[in-house]
């Protein structure tokens, strides 16, 4: 039988340790979170009351909208800027010096990046002091750029600064595979730059952009450090809201905190499946030659 063929079993055996670790650690964690969100805190009976309560809460909806707004806008902005930089600067990135320079932000942990933003861009930050020094603003408090605002400019800015190098990292190998002949073919057939991009680059870029986008979106939606440093009092991003409910002195909100995390996970899973479905369909179209 094929099953007993050692060559067939080998990859499974090799994967087994990591599958066990991931399965138990992540699986057990997710299971505990689900169980806690569906159990009455005092008695341990199964219930959906916490989800009902959550969906009735204005604070939850405001947090959800804020999180979606931040995750979508910073992901799209990072992808666009990353794509633009890779296209324009790909020749320089062959040189190791430029490549290291652009990847520099990846060395910083996210919370360090958030503190750097405070250090440079806050009302009492370095930039504001320079403005004051040169007399462009009369008082430190008049500094026009506000990082902690309803628009969450600070959070989005931090994510863009951190994630653009990641987008470049993902896109660069693709650009380095493109051969000049393909471009020449399009040009010979009378195509302009847009046609070159659309016919030679886009088909290979699209799946990678989607994949990178999902990674960034999932991370931004569920990450805690940056919004906890740069967020405002109300509304808070979902992970901060969940953390707050979880670590409150009154432990009765803990199921709610878990419910928030479960819903966040569901959103990420939904978007991931949706985009896999889209890329899969495209691949099938390409395979059929349509």
């Amino acid at each position: 039988m094929k099953w007993f063929n050692p060559e067939t079993i080998k990859p499974w055996l090799l994967l087994l340790p990591s599958v066990i670790v991931i399965g138990f650690l992540v699986g057990y964690g997710v299971w505990e979170a689900i169980a806690e969100s569906f159990r009455e805190w005092e008695t341990g009976k199964w219930t959906v009351q916490y989800y009902e309560e959550l969906l009735m809460k204005e604070a939850f909806w405001d947090s959800l909208f804020l999180s979606m707004y931040i995750a979508i806008s910073s992901t799209l902005a990072s992808l666009l800027i990353g794509l633009f930089l890779t296209r324009v600067l790909q020749r320089y990135f062959m040189n190791y010096r430029w490549k290291s320079l652009v990847w520099l932000p990846m060395l910083f942990p996210h919370f360090v990046a958030a503190y750097l933003i405070i250090l440079f861009l806050s009302e009492s930050g370095i930039l504001s002091s320079l403005f004051y020094h040169f007399g462009w603003v009369n008082e430190i408090a008049d500094f026009p750029f506000s990082i902690q605002s309803q628009h969450s400019a600070g959070i989005i800015f931090t994510y863009i600064w951190k994630e653009v190098p990641f987008v470049i990292l993902m896109l660069l190998p693709i650009y380095q595979q493109f051969s000049p002949e393909e471009e020449a073919t399009v040009r010979t057939l009378g195509g302009n730059s847009w046609d070159v991009f659309k016919t030679t680059e886009w088909p290979s870029l699209f799946p990678v952009l989607i994949e990178t986008g999902i990674i960034l979106f999932a991370f931004t939606l569920a990450a805690f450090e940056v919004p906890s440093v740069l967020g405002i009092t109300y509304p808070k991003m979902l992970p901060v809201l969940s953390y707050q409910w979880f670590f409150e002195n009154d432990w009765s909100n803990r199921p709610l905190a878990m419910a928030v995390m479960i819903i966040t996970t569901l959103i990420i899973l939904f978007i991931a499946f949706l985009s896999f479905w889209v890329t899969q369909r495209r691949r099938m179209h390409i395979a059929r030659g349509r």
Binding site: S124, I140, A141, Q148, S149, Q150, S228, I232, T233
Partner: peptide, 19 residues
């Protein structure tokens, strides 16, 4: 009042900066 310091250390930082 659009936002408040989220911790005492944030407030201390604002105070130490003269904000």
């Amino acid at each position: 009042g659009e936002t408040y310091p989220s911790t005492l250390s944030d407030l201390d930082h604002l105070y130490s900066q003269g904000e």
